[in-house]
């Protein structure tokens, strides 16, 4: 009951308010075009007709939510997933490179963090660069990576996945360095009194202690992997994927298509992040983290 009052009702209200605002803006932004049409045709238009028209335009400035929903339903359910016009197909293209890049990036980040934690030299010389690299707009590099790798005949999944890897390994590395260092001195001392080897300290203390940090940074990493995959699809000239849908939509002024792709991307991000949240809960409980 408390859950309903404290989160369902407020979140629901805000969501409804957002949808309502969306409709209002759709009417306001699309109205000039309708008025213009009516003036050209020299037919007076009633307010009711105007509002109805603004929500059913072919290429609206801002499509109404139900238009976007209809577009998503059409491209997800009515068209077979193997067709190039299916959103499932494009979503899968983006998702596969996101996941591949994310997996590689996480692995790389963890390995780098382990190396940094165990080597003072790396810690002092490499770590500042990792932190600096976070301030660099790496995403700007995406088109170059794609085009350059295309030029040497590496095409398809891998170049996009590389961008996702590149983007996702920094947060994981930084988070894991923090996590592997998170055991208290007391615990490390206890391990020493047990005469534990470096491996034992790692597997029995540092690794379990770093789990919450790992999952927090994985949430950031998966979100940014998706962004990387989408941006990586832009320079290839709209071949396949969510990014290609965005680009094609912006070329041909298909706003409904853009919004449908955007909402799909948002849903994918939300599902991926909450999936990692779920896994985090299970793993953290097994690793003995108490809420």
């Amino acid at each position: 009951m408390n859950f309903v009052r404290n989160s369902v009702i407020p979140v629901g209200t805000v969501l409804i308010a957002i949808v309502a605002l969306w409709y209002v803006f759709a009417v306001i932004l699309n109205a000039p075009f309708e008025r213009d049409q009516a003036a050209r045709a020299n037919t007076p238009i009633t307010t009711g007709q105007l509002i109805a028209n603004t929500m059913a335009q072919e290429r609206p400035v801002l499509p109404a939510p139900h238009q976007v929903a209809a577009e998503i339903r059409k491209t997800v359910f009515d068209i077979s997933p193997t067709s190039k016009r299916s959103l499932v197909y494009h979503g899968w293209v983006t998702l596969s490179s996101t996941l591949l890049g994310f997996a590689l990036g996480t692995l790389l980040g963890i390995l780098l963090a382990i190396a940094i934690v165990h080597s003072r030299t790396l810690d002092k010389s490499l770590m500042p660069w990792i932190i600096t690299s976070q301030t660099v707009p790496i995403l700007a590099i995406a088109p170059m990576v794609i085009v350059v790798l295309n030029a040497v005949n590496i095409t398809g999944l891998l170049p996009k996945a590389m961008i996702s890897t590149y983007l996702s390994f920094f947060p994981v590395a930084v988070g894991m360095v923090k996590g592997l260092r998170s055991p208290e001195i007391m615990h490390l001392d206890l391990m020493r009194t047990y005469n534990a080897s470096k491996m034992q300290v790692f597997w029995k203390l540092r690794w379990p202690a770093s789990m919450p940090y790992l999952f927090t940074s994985m949430k950031i990493a998966v979100a940014i992997s998706l962004v990387g995959a989408i941006v990586g699809e832009l320079p290839t000239g709209a071949v396949a994927g969510i990014g290609a849908r965005l680009l094609a939509g912006s070329y041909y002024g298909q706003t409904v298509q853009i919004w449908a792709a955007l909402i799909t991307a948002a849903l994918m991000a939300a599902v991926l992040v909450s999936l990692i949240g779920l896994i985090a809960n299970v793993v953290n409980r097994r690793m003995g983290v108490r809420p």
Binding site: A223, V227, I230, G243, L246, A261, V273
Partner: peptide
Amino acid sequence: ALPVVGIA
């Protein structure tokens, strides 16, 4: 956490 760049 969403790919907001897509709004571009």
